[in-house]
Design a protein around this nucleic acid. Structure first.
Lengths: 338, 338
DNA sequence: TAAGATAATGTTATCGCTAACATGCTACGA
DNA sequence: TCGTAGCATGTTAGCGATAACATTATCTTA
């Protein structure tokens, strides 16, 4: 690519200065119409492609956003990316996508590289991590523009876009209690990151509200993937009859789908032997043998809002820090007993 | 970000020249060990992040790859991206992801911007387009390093990575003929791009091989999305009894899933009234009421091979142009009648 | 007609970094 | 003791584009 045409080449070919060419190509005023046309023509015929790298160096602006997601094959995230793109497409930003595979180390590495590449801002859905907020704190403190989405870190000076996790979890648990009269309800939890925590809280709040027993054995801390759900469910299935739960609230759909597999393999039937609900509204949820009752997360909307907020944060210094909440809807199917 | 620490800042703080700092940070020889340590320490404490933009300008290398895909929510592509990332993660390249939503205009736009950003190379799965190869031809001729994947443009001097579309389509059609004895087989085709074309050819070849009738009314040219499959199937369903097909070969799974919906809505049953097979092995394929027989495409592998090939092409000029074919496997489920 | 305004263009310096060459210093063999 | 090799470091220039200022040439207007 060293053979690329530069402003200088066009300038020399035309016997003018590089500055004139620059002005002509950028539609500045004070350029003779005739000159402008000659320049445009020459640029075209020489196959000129402006060098954004040089431009970025001058302006210290790259029109580039880094997107950090934990798991690209979880259908929720591609949909978020679509939402992000809808916005960036109309604002000339390009996206650096990095998939961290739920590994915090990879995430830190990715962020480091993205900062080296001088992205204008970062959209982060953080990987599962211990409560080590300090890393993100110093990232934000360093002046890097960050908007968290879905798996957010709140209270460190960055805006966030998420769904009302606690409330949604509360509602779907309430549904199990109200509509179906279950009293023994278990929770397949996620790891200790924001959404895992909040969904657990919502679940607990529902039980408390209805004075239902909370049993430590019913709360299994697992992960967000299918295997984690499968493994966690196996533990529940091992419980003695008197402690056997009637229903399960899963931290997300992949986990629920893993759990469904475990339940089926154990020869039990859903929802008669055990009911189950998820969270996400995965593309597969309606297709399961027993369609999965779940919380629909408007992924596209989350992406869109996050991107909008980030771009505003980048473009004006006065932009305030917000915790934006996108509402979910309950998707009642039949795995809950309906 | 104008407040970033630069080499110069470190140099001044240490009373040395910027060059020495550069040398120290880049592990060059001929730097006093003591100096190097002081520099490293200072860089750390000042929160120095190397400016890759400036580096790129000097070296005319960005360690950046543009990935152009037509439809990020089609599960095949996220999986490809995972494969690409597996490679780039180990080679320090970052990915610009652009989703063109099957629109050629957006694709051209994206490529233009990516070239401005001086990506080292492009991984392209081209959007549906008329046979206008000239655009891609001049792209490749301009010296841009390109590797096509999945939806490839062959014969224009760029390497390609794809599955054996024609052969796979032939095989799955043969399965319908051999195993099930169907003689009236329709095809829900994709648009006129490489994979659409090749899968059509495979289908036709199978019919010819077994001397089966080819009926123009059985070949519906549609699109790659679910709605296209639905619409196309509706046309087939309108055919009079004597022309009504016994089985349908769909260009991909989303299209097949749309078709399944149309069939179910028409009150017909699969595979008794009409059999159907797809191509992709979408995450939903095994979950349909009648699990879908299809061709499994190793998406991850496609992404990996494409990325490897591109990086080799970027890094050595002698790299040859190849058409790499990744083999598929038939995924026999029950929608074919098995 | 002189003097200032305006339009079109050119020159210089800079963004942050590094290649290439230059400099100063120590060390070592003849 | 000198000359030269080699190490550690400095200086200059340039990557491609542009901001800011400088220079023309042309045009107004009192």
């Amino acid at each position: 690519m060293g053979s690329d045409v530069t402003l200088k080449h066009i300038a020399d070919a035309l016997g003018v200065s590089a500055m004139t060419v620059s002005r002509a190509l950028n539609n500045r005023s004070n350029v003779d119409e005739e000159t402008r046309e000659k320049v445009l023509e020459k640029a075209q015929s020489m196959g000129y492609t402006p060098n954004h790298v040089a431009k970025s160096l001058v302006s210290s602006k790259t029109y580039t956003i880094g997107v950090v997601i934990p798991e690209i094959t979880h259908a929720f995230f591609p949909e978020v990316v679509r939402g992000i793109e809808e916005v960036t497409n109309n604002s000339d930003y390009q996206l650096f996508l990095t998939n961290t595979n739920e590994q915090f180390d990879r995430e830190k590495n990715a962020i480091k590289t993205l900062r080296s590449k001088r992205v204008d801002g970062l959209l982060i859905s953080s990987s599962q991590t211990e409560d080590d907020v300090s890393y993100y704190k110093s990232l934000v403190d360093s002046g890097t523009k960050v908007v968290f989405f879905d798996r957010c870190i709140e209270g460190i000076g960055a805006s966030t876009v998420s769904v009302n996790d606690r409330e949604s979890s509360l509602k779907i648990t309430e549904h199990l209690i109200n509509k179906h009269g279950y009293t023994k309800i278990a929770h397949l939890g996620g790891p200790h990151v924001s959404i895992g925590q909040k969904r657990l809280e919502g679940y607990l709040e529902a039980l408390e509200k209805y004075d239902l027993p909370i049993n430590d054995k019913w709360i299994i801390v697992g992960g967000f993937q299918e295997e984690a759900g499968y493994d966690a469910m196996e533990k529940l299935l091992d419980l003695p009859t008197e402690e056997f739960p009637e229903a399960v609230v899963s931290v997300n759909d992949p986990s629920a789908i893993g759990a469904v597999k475990a339940i089926e393999e154990a020869g039990l039937s859903i929802p008669d032997d055990i009911a189950i609900v998820g969270f996400t509204d995965d593309i597969r949820a309606p297709l399961l043998d027993v369609p999965l009752t779940t919380v629909h997360q408007p992924a596209y909307e989350v992406g869109k809002r996050a991107a909008q907020k980030l771009i505003r944060t980048i473009e004006r210094d006065s932009e305030t820090v917000e915790n934006i909440v996108v509402p979910t809807t309950l998707k009642i199917r039949s795995s809950c007993g309906c």
